[in-house]
Write a protein that binds this DNA or RNA. Structure first.
Lengths: 192, 192
DNA sequence: AAAAAAAGAATGAACGTTCATTTTTACAAA
DNA sequence: TTTGTAAAAATGAACGTTCATTCTTTTTTT
């Protein structure tokens, strides 16, 4: 049994409230007072854990991004074949985005708006390094098209975010079978 | 020579200022006073043209979206073959996103945050109807994979937005050749 | 000279943040 | 175990600022 301090509980509540409110209203339309209320805490208490509103956003972003990245490479082993490794990572990311909807939505918002410091955002990109290395290997082995990591990302990973967004809007449902078909589309777009 | 009223000039300046400031700071971090200043106009004047800030956002969104859509289907003819028609539309959209950066960035921000009324957003989706019809035909003719329009969009059009965003961040350059290669990736992902 | 357009100043509400105070916790002495 | 107390954590109210919007007056157009 891990001992969790009371402070940590409050901090977690604040992080959770931030994610929820930012997802629904956007960062700048989310007042500190509402975050405090949702976390059952006084507004002043937030400033015991975070320097200011911007620091709160940056910290939450980096934590969620770290969680995402660790999920993305679960059970991945650089010794795998390119195709096998790519499928593993792709499915991990898709699973995360479709299961941890709140966290994925939050990241999507951070990555698509100026709410996060440029420095924190750069930090976040580093996490995908192993995927980029896998792609480099794939190109060397003649398995993947000679495309830059940006293009590879654009056509394989980025589309998942779109599917997550519209599924969350209730416009479609992505089940196991749809996911398999989407994976094939992703792979077909970059394989030689 | 088309006569352009002075009012129209002021309104255009307001629209332009809104796009510029929202792109750089986000909607909620952009005060009406700054929009007015950039348009060389009094804050009060904005309210002669728009009911309030939300109405300003909605109107700008719908106008830019309409411009985008008309650009997307330029020189497109429903009588074209599926592949030819798709290539035409895809290239149009890519050209728009890489040339009309300000307008494309603005749309990207509108589509990825809660800054626009849900109603206006739904309105905006309607514009892509001809592309959806082309896809339906492609599936019937056995040229395209049996994927929902959402998935087809996710793997062909949506990636362009990502490339535009990182090119705008100065992280990469998308030239003519890169665009051709990106198109092939898009087509490969959905063709049977 | 009447009407329309535009302006700047004013208003009231909301926000991020801080401050003075109270409550809770940790722990040593009885 | 109880009590006393100092530090830590938490609070609600308050501050100064900013913002969207409106009001009254001035300028421009017809």
């Amino acid at each position: 049994m891990k001992a969790i301090s009371k402070s940590q509980i409050k901090r977690d509540a604040l992080v959770k409230a931030t994610i929820c409110l930012v997802n629904n209203n956007g960062f700048h339309a989310t007042p500190m007072s509402k975050i405090a209320k949702m976390a059952n805490v006084s507004p002043a208490t937030i400033y015991l854990y975070f320097k200011n509103k911007q620091d709160l956003a940056n910290q939450v972003y980096m934590e969620v991004k770290a969680e995402f990245s660790s999920f993305a490479f679960k059970d991945y082993d650089p010794g795998m074949s390119v195709e096998e490794g790519f499928q593993k990572i792709w499915m991990n990311i898709a699973t995360f985005k479709l299961r941890e909807v709140d966290h994925a939505l939050f990241l999507s918002q951070c990555d698509n708006t100026p709410m996060i410091d440029e420095e924190s955002r750069q930090q976040g990109l580093k996490h995908l390094e192993p995927l980029v290395e896998l792609w480099e290997r794939g190109k060397k082995e003649g398995i993947l098209k000679p495309l830059s990591p940006f293009v590879l990302y654009a056509f394989t990973i980025y589309p998942i975010t779109f599917l997550m967004n519209i599924e969350n809007g209730g416009l479609c449902k992505v089940d196991e079978q749809a996911l398999e078909k989407a994976y094939v589309a992703a792979w077909d777009s970059i394989k030689l």
